[in-house]
Design a protein around this nucleic acid. Sequence first.
DNA 1: CGGTTACATGAAACCGGTTACAGCGAGATG
DNA 2: CATCTCGCTGTAACCGGTTTCATGTAACCG
Lengths: 341, 341
Amino acid sequence: MATIRELARLCGVSPATVSRVFNNPEVVNAKTREQVLRTARQIGYLPNESARTLATKKSFMVGLVWDTDHRRPGWRHPFFQEILIGLKTALSGREYHLLMLATSGDTSGERTEDAYVRAVRRHNLDGVVMIDSGTWDPSLRRLSESGVPCVSLDRPVEGSRATYVTSDNAGGARLAVRHLHERGRRAIATITGPAHTRPGAERLRGYQDEMSRLGLPHRPEFVVEGDFYLSGGHAAMRRLLEADERPDAVFVAGDEMAVGALRAIGEAGLKVPEDIALVGFDDIEVAALVPPGLTTVAQDKAGFGTAAAEAVVSMINGADAPPPRILPTTLVVRGSSTPPL
Amino acid sequence: MATIRELARLCGVSPATVSRVFNNPEVVNAKTREQVLRTARQIGYLPNESARTLATKKSFMVGLVWDTDHRRPGWRHPFFQEILIGLKTALSGREYHLLMLATSGDTSGERTEDAYVRAVRRHNLDGVVMIDSGTWDPSLRRLSESGVPCVSLDRPVEGSRATYVTSDNAGGARLAVRHLHERGRRAIATITGPAHTRPGAERLRGYQDEMSRLGLPHRPEFVVEGDFYLSGGHAAMRRLLEADERPDAVFVAGDEMAVGALRAIGEAGLKVPEDIALVGFDDIEVAALVPPGLTTVAQDKAGFGTAAAEAVVSMINGADAPPPRILPTTLVVRGSSTPPL
DNA sequence: CGGTTACATGAAACCGGTTACAGCGAGATG
DNA sequence: CATCTCGCTGTAACCGGTTTCATGTAACCG
């Protein structure tokens, strides 16, 4: 493997000059620069990132922390994949790499929870992006306080080196309710996410806000808490159907739950949208596939990754934590909310 | 940040000894070792991986190469996420980290295709896992020939430092056909994947083998090529329905296509499974969600990641490339293939 | 023409580990 | 008692970059 000294020797210059060619091109004489670049290409010189990191303490890598515990939401975030690709693409464009870090699944005994924090320090990671792992983890807090830029997805965080990206959950929920209202529905129920999650709480708030704005009565029996998963949606819908008065529409705060609800409605011998209209949230792939097509509030999936990348890089470059980024949501209308003929 | 010399000074030993405590514990006196470990814990010493990599040329990182081009299959591999989690978990357990590398989406001009190869060299990556990116990429070949262990998923590769992991595609296809036969179907058609992909070709072969084994006639009009995507499955199914004789069952070589087929059947006013039974392949999430539930050939999703991790690590440790790993497939029976009442 | 300034470069220390080699003391051996 | 062996440890070079500081040269100025 060609080293910088070798390249320098071939060009008859010092290693320092070669280094400058790559990091500070403008300070070196144009002629020398060209020659160095040409020779570098010829011999296939590539700077060794470890050496560079060792010297500069910048690794040009950011960690993606996500939760590999199957019981927790991280790895099955509704569009993990889209976030990942958005993040990766945006980071690549800024010359950063992405290192995968997990908050569980590590073997080590006692302080396993901190494994990813140790990785950040050992590898000189320049920043961290975290996919909602349940809590604003104390280790992460310490990390951020120690100056490592942190961006969290869907979970508020604080600190001068930390910010977060999330969707306009409340706005999206309002959109959904308004849409159902416009389609003539009045008895609008909701299946919420867990109250302790940010998106869960926000979507409920949006639902409530819009209901009052429209002058629709608030009925406690029309608000049932789900868990963001299929089975939870199914169970919640059954509870709604057992109530004295049946809703003619349900805003379900997550598409996966909505599919569960769809099934429960079918099992009860009712039809969507004729008997009950449904609007979900997320716009996951299934939404378009499951008959009759699920009307849903779409999140800007790629935007998550892009926004996170922007935020983390700007902090890496010395900026203060930018304000939280709230991504707009849009309504995608499909069969589950068409007016009954 | 604590360095090894600092720790050494505190313990009254040389840096070499400290280094040995971490890399070769058995050669250092038990008493000294304990003291070093204790002190290390106290001051929160963590070895600097860049320095270590620089000195040893081993980074304990492997690259995951995948295709971020939306038009190509890599990033939407039917269970990218499960592979990723399996891989990550298995690698973590072996003290390796995972660096994300993309084959497109990079900005640089001319030789953009090689961006990930350069990353491998710059970062001293110990190995590479590649999610089917269409072709057995010449850059990857060179990489493998230069001694970097490579594991490919769903695509055969060759070389003493390269191997691959795939499902028993042919076996799974046979399973599907046999199942349909057992359920009394005789006019069994198939919608295949693209012929140039390995899984596409293998599944077709399995279908053909089992058809002849069962003594069922081979009818060319019962074999239609799809593209693994929803729309392709939809179109292929329509062509099957337009044929003179209608099949009473279809083996669809991918669940996403199967969902498209399901839809096409519904649009034609026919019913699954009454008129046509369907068996898919992959067992993606939707398969369980879409009514009436899609019978499908399940792949061992987590197994992909685990097997890849095992293979790459064993090669990193000096072993020759292990033989290709063929993961078993199993049939998951759901509503789409129940016998007509 | 002497003195300043700007520009381009080189020498050498440094980043934080690893490791080949040498050395030392204690116990074993002849 | 001299020597050998073994177990343990230290010295110092090395990995491949970056960066501070000094230096040399040419241009510029009064």
